[in-house]
Structures are given as structure tokens and as C-alpha cells.
Design a protein around this nucleic acid. Structure first.
Lengths: 171, 171
DNA sequence: AAGAACTTTCAAAAAGAAGTGAAAGTTAAT
DNA sequence: ATTAACTTTCACTTCTTTTTGAAAGTTCTT
């Protein structure tokens, strides 16, 4: 083992911490991302209590964020026979994780825009101002519809295809 | 003109407002996105004063956000002959706009992760915990390097290629 | 080099987002 | 039906981010 090697505990801390920071810049809240990180690197399922202790967060907070992760499809409930408690495991396949995130971000970032743009497309006019306006709206509409359907297909594509075709496609 | 047609003023307001909301969920601050929206739909260059008035924001705020938009490459300074004042115009080509955003988001969302993952890769071990940890870190590394180079190429691709090839590629 | 016309900075204030924890709600076993 | 083991909710607090505006800094013009 090299002197520069990082030990497991420090590595874990750093990972959870960074996944959290990352999360915020991804529009995911810090704690949600940290819970996800914790579950990702845990070899077995954890219960709410474990998570609260590890991350030093309250019950309510833990619960909220676990719930959100389940909604997103990034985490599953796991019931152990004979135990009342609920345990949680993270989805560990990178492509599935990416897929979940693509779907959620599309929902939050793209779809609302498409709706507004549709509403707004009924503006029409002949002055320079309205012409500029309509042109911009039109361009956004065309562009974002394309992006929308591309992301749609991408999120439905399977992992294998993704790895082999998409990633290399752009050569 | 239909009864349901939206008039220009309302359309503009709605557009600026929504682009702003959108911005927040994109990790771009609301005001920055609104300034961008305003410039996007304006047929000619606006000065700081115009922007302050239109959006009802302070001088400092306007200045900061214009500056950030310029840094991102979404807005250009325009100097009118004979005028001291600086005017600003938005980049209006959708593909150029997308490109700027891809570059910035990659910088903020992906690159920091790659750095941390690199640091962390020096952990090694033999217990189940460290094995799980190393596996996850490895998977993330592989995946995010691929994503990184794909985005890189994408951001260097030109508009024409983008429109014709990429968008339809996934058929 | 003095003045006018703008632009930038920054510390303090306001707004907004996230976290807490105790109380209320559920559910499974007896 | 009761209880015990969990989960969820929500009014309140704490932390973060954004905005303000006045003061300081620039840079053209004469």
C-alpha cells in the first residue's frame, strides 16, 4: 500500500460528501444525493436508522429523501423476512442510474418549457418586436422538441446499446 | 386574431417568467435566466438601464448577471458608435446556445466528479466493504469518462452536423 | 488633469431552501 | 382490539443563496 493511498473510511467520507455537492449543482438536494451515495457504496441494505446515524440527519429528513429516491427509481425497498423494519438498497447499474436521472431531469427541465412554449406560440404579429418574438419561440420549439424525443429514445434504449453504440457513435 | 390568441406583452412576460423558472431548475439563477430571456426576444441591443427597468432589478444585480452571461458566451457586448454606454445582445442561434450550456454544465456537473473519483480510486482493499466501494468507484469512473468525452465531441460538433446527424441518429 | 458617464464591488438585508423533532398516523403481530 | 414498531407530517429554525444600493473604480472627452 502506497503512502498516497487513501484509506476506506476517508474514501467513503469523501465520496459521500462529493456526491452531495455534485447533487446540488445537479439540482438534486444535497442530502438526497448523500443518502444515495451512502446506499450506493454499502454492500448490503440499510434501514432508516442506519442512514440517520451515518449522515447525522433527522428522521424526517431521512424519510423524505429516501422517499424521493424511491420515486426517482434510484432506490428500492427491501423487506427482510421476520423484520418489521424496511431496508433500502440502491440501484447499482450505472446505466440504470443515468436513465433515472435523464427521465427526471427531462420531466423537470424540459417538459415545463415545452408546455409554456406551446401556450406562447399563439402570439402573432407584424411589428419587428413580435416577429423577433415569434422567431425565437419557434426556434426553441423546434429545438426542444427534438431534444425531447432524443432523450425519450435515449432513456428507453438498453444498457448494451448505450455502451456500444451511443458512446462511440460520435467516434 | 382568435379569442385565445395571446397578445405580445403577455407572451413576453410569460416567456421571461418561465425561462427564469426553468433556469432555476437548470441550476442557473433565476435572474440570469430572465436577463437572457429578455435579450433573446429583443430585436435590438439593450443597455444595463433597459434591463434594470424591464426586470425591476438593481444595478448591481443586473451587472453581475450580464457579466455571467457574457462569461458563459450567451451574450455579447455591443458598442454603438458615438455612445459611451455598453449595449448587450444575446446569441440567438439555438445550437450555439445549447453548446454554451453543455460546456458550462459539463464544467460544473461532471468535471468536479471526475476529479474526486480520481483521488478516491487509490483506495484498495479486500473486505466486502472496500470491494463494493472500489467497484462502484470504478463503474462511475468508466461511465463518467465516456460521458465526458461524448459531451466534449458534442460541444465541438457544428450546428449542421448536430441537426442532421445527431438528432436523427437514434432514429 | 478634471469632470462626466458608466461599470464594478461588497457588506448588509431579504428571500428561499432545507433540516429538525415532536406529534400524529400506519400497520403487523399477538 | 391493543400495542409496539415504524413511517409521515408539519410548524418552526437554521443555513444558503440572491438582491440591494451606496461607494469606489474606470475610462472617455475636453
Amino acid at each position: 500500500m502506497n503512502a498516497e493511498d487513501m484509506n476506506l473510511e476517508d474514501g467513503k467520507k469523501k465520496f459521500i460528501q462529493s456526491w452531495g455537492t455534485m447533487g446540488s449543482s445537479w439540482g438534486i438536494n444535497r442530502t438526497m444525493a448523500q443518502v444515495h451515495a451512502l446506499l450506493l457504496i454499502s454492500p448490503d441494505a440499510l434501514c432508516a436508522e442506519d442512514i440517520m446515524e451515518d449522515l447525522k440527519i433527522s428522521r424526517g429528513n431521512a424519510n423524505m429523501n429516501i422517499r424521493k429516491l424511491i420515486d426517482w427509481g434510484l432506490v428500492y425497498k427491501e423487506l427482510k423476512p421476520g423484520e418489521r423494519k424496511e431496508f433500502f438498497v440502491a440501484e447499482k447499474d450505472m446505466w440504470d442510474i443515468a436513465r433515472c436521472i435523464i427521465i427526471q431531469r427531462k420531466k423537470r427541465e424540459l417538459e415545463p418549457m415545452l408546455r409554456v412554449i406551446d401556450e406562447i406560440s399563439s402570439v402573432e404579429g407584424t411589428c419587428p418586436e413580435s416577429e423577433e418574438f415569434c422567431k425565437v419561440v419557434k426556434d426553441i420549439k423546434v429545438f426542444s422538441s427534438k431534444a425531447d424525443s432524443t432523450l425519450d429514445r435515449l432513456s428507453k434504449a438498453d444498457a448494451k446499446w448505450f455502451a456500444s453504440t451511443f458512446m462511440n457513435m460520435i467516434k
